[in-house]
């Protein structure tokens, strides 16, 4: 007899998330997702992106990742996947690559926000600080390492998902999530969980295009912010 899938299995089918593994903290992201029961695939070839429902671009050195992504044709494939609706999460160097910016390295510009490299200074200016999240009341322990800064503009107001003092440190625009700190360096899984929700919502939307993006409810709590 064929067992009928339970309700939760129907709602949460198993998903696989890719992690760009050219350089940087890819192994740490894998560890975080494993704790959430999510299987992962290290991405070093364009065709590997066809096997995953979402992508994480990790922390590391943005210039190195950018060079290798270009050489191995991963950059075009990532843009193509994003345009086809794949959720992508970039942490630190990953956020730099996903955002816009005049300075090197060349950006993927999948987010319309400008992400400034090394905006707080050098390693001696690295710091940790409590990050306020829109989707969870407890502050998140944010570790900022030679961190970039998301430049506030008209679009950034509606994108805020996390902030520290005056700075936007976690933003979401449609299916692109950027964090300037490193959730993969902590045991706290809330930011990764948020991304997995985005991936699941995207898959559900693919199946049933009439469905509203389930993340839109999260947006409302950030309206009270005045930045």
């Amino acid at each position: 007899m064929v067992r009928k899938p339970s309700k939760s299995e129907v709602e949460c089918p198993p998903i696989k998330v890719g992690i760009l593994a050219l350089q940087g903290s890819f192994a740490l992201h894998k560890k975080s997702l494993a704790k959430l029961g999510i299987s992962t695939l290290f991405i070093r070839r364009p065709e590997e992106l066809d096997q995953v429902a979402g992508l994480i671009i990790p922390g590391g050195e943005s210039t190195v990742m950018s060079d290798l992504a270009r050489e191995y044709d991963l950059d075009q494939k990532i843009v193509q996947k994003a345009k086809a609706g794949m959720p992508i999460f970039g942490t630190c160097a990953g956020a730099i690559l996903l955002g816009k910016g005049e300075e090197a390295p060349p950006r993927l510009e999948l987010s319309s926000l400008t992400v400034q490299r090394n905006a707080y200074g050098r390693q001696r200016e690295s710091f940790d600080a409590p990050v306020q999240l829109t989707f969870s009341p407890e502050p998140f322990h944010g570790i900022f390492i030679r961190a970039p800064r998301i430049v506030p503009n008209e679009q950034s107001k509606s994108a805020i998902e996390g902030w520290y003092q005056e700075d936007l440190v976690l933003t979401q625009q449609d299916k692109i999530l950027l964090s300037t700190f490193h959730p993969e360096l902590t045991e706290d899984l809330r930011v990764h969980e948020h991304f997995i929700e985005m991936v699941r919502a995207s898959l559900a939307q693919e199946k049933d295009p009439s469905m509203q993006n389930s993340n839109s409810r999260i947006k409302q709590s950030s309206k009270k912010l005045t930045l």
Binding site: A21, L22, Q23, G24, S25, F26, A27, L28, G59, G60, E61, V64, C92, A93, Q123, R124, E125, S126, F127, D128, A129, P130, H141, I143, F144, I145, R146, H182, L185
Partner: peptide, 22 residues
């Protein structure tokens, strides 16, 4: 939690980890 200007053990080891695969 440390203040803005002190670089703690977490930031030191975290920074070291960002060089992995490099």
């Amino acid at each position: 939690m440390s203040t803005n200007n002190s670089t703690s053990w977490e930031e030191k080891v975290g920074f070291a980890k960002m060089h992995c695969g490099g």
